[in-house]
Design a protein around this nucleic acid. Sequence first.
DNA 1: GTCCAGGACCTAG
DNA 2: CTAGGTCATGGA
Length: 314
Amino acid sequence: MSPSQIAGATCQATFPVRDYDLAATLDSGQAFRWEFQDDRWHGIIGHHAVELRQNESCLIAETPEPVADWHWLKHYLQLDLNLNSVLATFPDDEPMRGAVNACRGLRLLRQDPWECLASFILSSTKQIVQIRQIVALLCERFGEPVVGTRSTASPSSPEKSGTRWNASLPTSEAHPLSHSFPTPEKIAALTEAELRACKMGFRAPNLLNAARQIAKGKLDLERLRQLSCAEAREELMTLRGVGGKIADCVLLFAYGFDGAFPVDVWVERALQRLYFPRRRASEKRLRRFAATHFGPRAGYAQQYLFHYMRTKMK
DNA sequence: GTCCAGGACCTAG
DNA sequence: CTAGGTCATGGA
């Protein structure tokens, strides 16, 4: 490996990995901020800017600032998970074998609950490309600047001057990956109009309400970790705009409840086509089937079906 | 122009 | 329980 190919990248680490498809994992509709450019993935995890790439046996991370402890990255990417122990729990049937073979190395991330919840509140009846656009706008306008690996042209001036009536819109082309995801408190102080200006349409009041519930302490996302999957699901669904599907996404992608099984149009299509090709099954029927058929890591199986259907089958 | 998107919610049968 | 309308926006 050549030494840092990026001017300004001051910290690099290498992690041995097996059965890890970084591209499939970062681009499979779990997270919405990763961008592939110049042969690597650029992203922000919390307040860390990071670039990721991989070779046959290793995953290589670079950050602009020194990192003493890489736990945040290893946790986010779930580097210590033995994928085979997960795959072994899948049902041994033809559709599942097809999905696993087609998506070797696909993983589930372990994201921040708020970013995940907010992103999926914005996801309803939106294509993934559009979700990415909305999230990018939201972060550009209301997130905190982070030290980036790419040229940070900010002359270190008045980021603090933007009060809520003086909402500082990006002066020109601020790079979408130069800001962290805005906190609940930050969004709670905005107006619905400011959120609608991020192209989120009817989802704006839902996001605003969720941010305010959390900022007020009426809903504690950290506390949900101590609850059962079903209990946490109920809590999440008390929010307007959060139904079963979005709650399941947060349970699966942020809290690691592997039993959660989000059913969107793609997964419904996959179940219908792969498991009930003859007669049409109601959505209730499909959900009941999924609850028993895919085992304790059903959510992981769901991600394989989702990605398989979206990338390999029309 | 038409259809559809990692939906939720409300109403009517 | 199921079917249909509504919400907003932009790709395909």
